[in-house]
Structure formats: C-alpha cells, structure tokens
C-alpha cells in the first residue's frame, strides 16, 4: 500500500491516464448492459405481442388464494403429466397427505407364509428372494420362540438412502422407501448399510426376465426386476395408489397385519378389515419397533407375541439348496 502511494504522487499524469482508461471501460460496460437489457425487453415484448395476436381471447380463472385473474388462453397449460413422466414423478413424490405405517401382531403369526407367496408373485421374485420373510426368533435361551414376519422397515432415517451414491433409492414424503432399478448401479452399499437385512439383489437373471421383456418399469411395483440391481419391500405402493391394502397384508389368513395412515391415526387389519386407532392399538398392546437404538426410526411396529393364538412350530424350508 505504502509503495503504491509513493509511486503515485510523482506520476500524477500517469494516474489520470489510468483512471480515464478505467472510466472508459466502466462506461463501455454500462453501455453494454444497457443494450442487452433493452434488447431483452424488446424481444420479450415481441413474444408477448405475437402470442396476443395468436389467440386474442382471455380466460378468467380462480387462483389458489381465491383471486380472479384473466389469463391468455395460450398461457394455460395442463397441470397433469402423462405416461412415463407421470409415473416417474408419482413414484418419487408419493401419495400426498399420507404417512403409511404397518403394525405386525406377533401373537397371531403361525408362519403360514401366505404373505410371502403373495409378495413374491406380485413382484416376480424367486422363491429364495424375500421382500417379506418370516423369521423364527428366540430372544434368549429362556424366552419362548416366536414367528416374526420381517420386511423393509421403511425407516424415517434410512441408512440405505443415505449411502446410495446415485439416488437410486429414496425416501418419499408418504414414508415409503423405494428403488429405481433403472438407476441402480449395483454397488450394494445399501445392503451393507441396512441393519434389518431387508434388501435383496438380482444376482442372476430374474425369474420372469423373459416374460417381462418390454414392460415399462414401475418403481411402485418394482417390476420388471432387473439383473444386477437391488429389490426390496415397497409397502405395495402400487396397491396403495389404488386405495387397496398391500399384497402381504391382504393375503394373511391369520389377521397378523394392520396397515394404514399415521396422519389419520387409523390402521386396517388385512384379514378382518377392521379399522382401529393406531395409537390405541400400540398403547394397549405394548407396540415396539425393531432395534430402535440404531436411530433408524422404523415405520413398522410390532405387537409382542403374548397370549399366542398358535403354538410355535419349527419351520420347514422350501428353498433350493443352492442358487
């Protein structure tokens, strides 16, 4: 700084020349901006006029906040998306206003595995591929064994979504964690991150690969399954969109599952179709979540296996020896 001052004072003419040059550049810049703005204004005016000429009619519409406005009819665009765009935005945005939740009553499960077969059929899965699997659990040597249907917990803090490098798995506002298998690169980081072992991978050609050829991918159904990509429980998002209960919930013969909307505080039993208060059901029956200490905030609740309706039997495996 000091050096600058020293050099300035003896060279007054030099400085003034420099500042003239600077001023000139500044003016040039201002003029440039002015020309550009003017041109843009003229151009947009021209477009506006062109449009006005094209229709000549205006429509009166009611806005969201209740005002009446007149709008040129050319300006009105359909709000609805169609085809693939619609499906993609729907599967990302979810069903507005809903917070889906599942309650699994362990006292009623006798490992009938009807939920599993309905699910595998709907999602075109092989017999060893489970979105929903019934596990035979025993918490400690002296406690009684029980059957526990286990699906994706649709966590509100999903570790799988956090680690996905390409946004192929995502959390929707209605609570569902979905997969876009057109996007999945098959790195399986989400499988490593999931503490519930809820995710499966298409290691070999999917069961119905030949049959499903040409079908457009539906993320809410996860069909067609694709080789080298992830698959998992979707809370049957396609059924929910139609106002129906998930495949597994509907298929259960033993009224194990309740499914519903947390916002409405109501869940419906898939077998009896009885609708009850979610909060009351959880309160009266000691509802709990799987491994809440991990901070995943699951959307699946369990009711403990007390006063069981069926005796516990060892399960027989029907899966192949090797795949």
């Amino acid at each position: 700084m000091e050096e600058n001052n020293n050099t300035h004072s003896p060279n007054e003419p030099e400085k003034s020349k420099a500042s003239t040059r600077r001023d000139f550049l500044k003016n040039l810049g201002l003029a440039g901006v002015g020309v550009a703005t003017g041109a843009a204004a003229l151009y947009s005016g021209h477009i506006f006029e062109a449009k006005k000429e094209a229709t000549g009619e205006s429509k009166v519409l009611l806005t969201q906040d209740g005002r009446l406005v007149s709008v040129d009819s050319l300006e009105i665009k359909s709000h609805e998306k169609t085809g693939e765009d619609l499906r993609e935005s729907q599967s990302r945005e979810g069903i507005p206003g809903r917070r889906w939740v599942m309650v699994t009553d362990l006292s009623r499960c006798r490992n009938a595995r009807k939920c599993i077969s309905a699910c595998q059929e709907a999602h075109h899965l092989r017999p060893e591929q489970y979105h929903m699997n019934t596990l035979q659990m025993q918490d400690s040597p002296n406690t009684a064994p029980y059957n526990m249907p286990k699906n994706c917990q649709h966590c509100d803090n999903p570790p799988c979504v956090a680690v996905c490098p390409v946004d192929a798995t995502y959390k929707r506002p209605d609570g569902i964690v979905l997969i876009e298998n057109d996007r999945c690169i098959g790195c399986r980081f989400c499988m490593a991150a999931c503490p519930y072992s809820a995710r499966i991978f298409n290691w070999i050609e999917p069961k119905d690969a030949a049959k499903d050829q040409g079908i457009e991918y539906n993320a809410e159904l996860n069909v067609p399954q694709k080789l080298g990509t992830i698959s998992k429980c979707l809370f049957s998002a396609d059924r929910l969109r139609e106002g129906k209960l998930p495949y597994c919930v509907e298929a259960c013969p033993n009224s194990v599952y309740y499914f519903g909307d947390e916002n409405e505080d109501s869940v419906t039993n898939g077998t009896t179709k009885e609708t009850v208060r979610l909060s009351k059901l959880l309160r009266d029956n000691g509802g709990y979540q799987l491994m809440p200490e991990l901070g995943t905030k699951p959307r699946v609740y369990y009711l403990p296996p007390k006063n069981r309706l069926f005796p516990f039997e060892e399960a027989k495996d029907a899966t192949p020896e090797k795949v």
């Binding site: 956090a162 680690v163 996905c164 490098p165 390409v166 946004d167 192929a168 996007r183 999945c184 690169i185 098959g186 790195c187 399986r188 980081f189 991978f201 298409n202 080789l227 080298g228 990509t229």
Partner: peptide, 23 residues
C-alpha cells in the same frame, strides 16, 4: 468389477450424491 451394473458407472458422476461415501 464389484458393480452389478458396470455399464452405469457414469451415473456416479451424472447423478452423484455428495452424501454418499462412495462419492
């Protein structure tokens, strides 16, 4: 060689999410 879909490698750059340690 560990990717199920190696032909989608470019997706890591196209759709990359900075939250993921892979990025």
């Amino acid at each position: 060689s560990d990717m199920g879909r190696p032909e989608r490698l470019a997706y890591v750059f196209i759709y990359g999410r900075p939250q993921s340690p892979i990025l």
